[in-house]
């Protein structure tokens, strides 16, 4: 068992991180804090998940969200996709393992991965709508969100959803409000099998290594940790029994990274675009300074008069 996080005291305590700990702020330049907070992480051990959806319920409960009653289309996924209200979702995959001949039920708890290199934040045009704290949490700041959906395009994991009701983007906050007072996320608290554990990123890696050794001893020789380097690691990690084929788990990307299209759009594109516009305007000014206006001469007017006379006669 992973040691449980003790319940908080009833004493009021100051938040453990805040604006002074911002590493990145969308559409803004911030000076990152001199000293980084210890990185936190949530570890989701897919091999221990029983698919009870307690985490989904706890998420709705803690964040005071309400999901609409949906329609059963014959799968366990409920709702069918992440929504502006469902920030986490159990995705069920039935997998027939060709090696063992076993039917495996792969259940992955989907949600924001809290990337170290967050594509949503880099795509966001609104100052301060997306922030990254030095402990690794990537959070949306509702008051600054304009609902443009650029974060959806920036995200390598297809996580943010735009609300049709208030036109704001929503996703898992890693329960930043709970973490700020020393608690783990609500989903972790609710998990009955400790498939979800929470702690510092180093602790989680150590714990994951134990779990992976255990899985390997049980014949899952491809078991491993999902902490994708393409986004410089994540603050939500998975223990997978088939870490060599993450796509098995409802399309978990094998090598996620910020799309080169998004990098071009939000990186070099911005500067090249403004430069081209600026240079064209400057060319106009310079041309006018050197060349002077192109004026109609009195002779032109006379010639036109003559032409008109000729035309009349």
């Amino acid at each position: 068992m992973f040691p449980a996080i003790p319940n908080p005291t009833t004493e009021k305590s100051a938040a453990r991180f805040g604006d002074k700990d911002l590493m990145r702020r969308s559409a803004s330049t911030v000076t990152p804090p001199a000293k980084r907070q210890t990185e936190v992480a949530k570890l989701i051990d897919v091999s221990k998940c029983i698919g009870c959806k307690a985490c989904q319920t706890a998420c709705l409960e803690w964040n005071q969200l309400k999901e609409e009653v949906g329609v059963n289309v014959g799968v366990y996924d409920n709702p069918h996709d992440l929504t502006p209200n469902s920030w986490t979702l159990m995705r069920y995959t039935e997998y027939e393992n060709p090696e063992s001949g076993n039917l495996e039920w792969l259940i992955r708890k989907d949600g924001c991965m809290h990337c170290e290199d967050p594509g949503c934040l880099k795509a966001c045009p609104s100052p301060g709508a997306i922030v990254q704290y030095s402990n690794g949490i990537v959070d949306f700041v509702k008051e600054n969100c304009i609902g443009c959906g650029y974060c959806v395009k920036g995200c390598p994991f297809n996580i943010p959803r735009i609300s049709r009701a208030d036109h704001k983007a929503y996703k898992c906050t890693l329960c930043s409000d709970r973490v700020a007072v020393g608690q783990g996320p609500a989903c972790q608290k609710a998990c009955p099998t400790q498939a979800i554990v929470f702690g510092t990123k180093d602790e989680m890696k150590t714990w994951a290594a134990k779990r992976i050794a255990d899985l390997k001893s049980r014949g899952f020789d491809k078991a491993g940790l999902y902490d994708p380097p393409g986004v410089q690691g994540t603050h939500v990690m998975y223990v997978l029994h088939h870490a060599d084929t993450p796509q098995l788990y409802a399309g978990l990307p094998e090598n996620p990274r910020i799309s080169p299209i998004v990098e071009a759009w939000k990186g070099v594109g911005k500067y090249a675009g403004l430069a081209l516009i600026g240079l064209t305007a400057a060319a106009g000014v310079i041309h006018h300074l050197l060349q002077g206006p192109n004026r109609v001469t009195p002779e032109d007017e006379e010639n036109a008069e003559k032409l008109a006379e000729g035309g009349k006669s």
């Binding site: 109609v296 001469t297 032109d300």
Partner: peptide
């Protein structure tokens, strides 16, 4: 426009 403009 003026005729001269057109001519030019």
């Amino acid at each position: 426009v003026t005729g001269g403009w057109g001519w030019r």
